[in-house]
């Protein structure tokens, strides 16, 4: 889908030491937002590897750089300096057109607010994506994966918040993305609804093997991940590897 820029010097070695392929490799990543005369440093040199099929939780307070990092990994934003590789494609030295193709073919996004189209049913909201995707799954299958087989023909206004978020997840996974990036997917939901959404994300991760990164403020959600990456003040402060993962149903907050 994307063209390699031919710069092999900074490319990650794959597979990595644990035997898994590196999907994302970021090194020395910085991001500075210029707000008039004020400079806001969102990222201050982030080094990060994400591996194929793993579920990672990015944890940190507001303003720690979680969303900025996720946006750069997803091709929604560009880094000020440093390198980011998706497989062997450099996301920093690429054109806007290539970034668009990268997002379209490789990345699924889930945001805190569901961004569903109100005039389309759940099935049609997913079909909007599958009609333009290169190798999509059936919209019905995507919705079945998140437990919404009985709600195919309901409009967003007829669905609860949790159901709407699950439609958003189904829409993100329906194109069979290689990576799923979720920015506070449970942020607007109560805990019981949030658990249902997290179960949907876990289903996708386990059944499809989609590399999944989830941003959250909620530390307990980290227990369901393979790794928890803590961010603070634009830097990775700690990486925690979970020896055993907890099922979303057992989480509470």
């Amino acid at each position: 889908m994307m063209c390699s820029n031919g710069n092999d010097a900074d490319q990650p070695s794959a597979p990595h030491a644990a035997g898994k392929r590196v999907v994302f490799h970021a090194a020395g990543l910085t991001k500075v937002y210029q707000m008039g005369e004020v400079q806001v440093q969102a990222l201050r040199g982030v080094d990060l590897d994400l591996y194929d099929g793993e579920l990672v939780v990015l944890l940190g307070p507001s303003g720690s750089g979680k969303s900025t990092l996720l946006n750069i990994l997803g091709g929604l934003d560009s880094a000020t300096s440093g390198t980011v590789y998706y497989l062997d494609h450099n996301l920093v030295q690429t054109t806007e057109r290539e970034l668009t193709r990268y997002r379209r073919h490789h990345v699924g996004f889930v945001f805190q607010f569901y961004n569903l189209i109100p005039s389309l049913t759940a099935l049609e909201n997913v079909a909007v994506v599958t009609e333009i995707a290169a190798r999509p799954m059936r919209p019905q299958d995507a919705l079945a994966l998140v437990g919404l087989s009985e709600r195919l023909n309901h409009f967003p206004a007829q669905l609860s918040g949790g159901e709407q978020q699950r439609v958003a997840i189904a829409r993100a996974i329906a194109k069979n993305p290689d990576v799923l990036l979720c920015d506070e997917p449970t942020g607007a939901l109560d805990s019981s609804t949030g658990v249902v959404v997290l179960e949907a994300l876990q289903q996708v991760n386990q059944k499809l093997g989609t590399t999944t990164a989830v941003i959250t403020h909620n530390a307990s959600i980290g227990q369901m991940a393979d790794r928890v990456i803590h961010l603070a003040d634009g830097r990775i402060s700690e990486v925690q590897v979970n020896a055993s993962k907890v099922a979303p149903r057992e989480l509470s907050w």
Binding site: I117, S119, L120, E124, N125, A127, V128, E131
Partner: peptide, 15 residues
């Protein structure tokens, strides 16, 4: 009909 076309016609009908 494509989903995006349905969106167009439904929203046009609504307004």
């Amino acid at each position: 009909m494509k989903a995006i076309d349905r969106k167009l016609w439904r929203e046009l009908w609504a307004m």
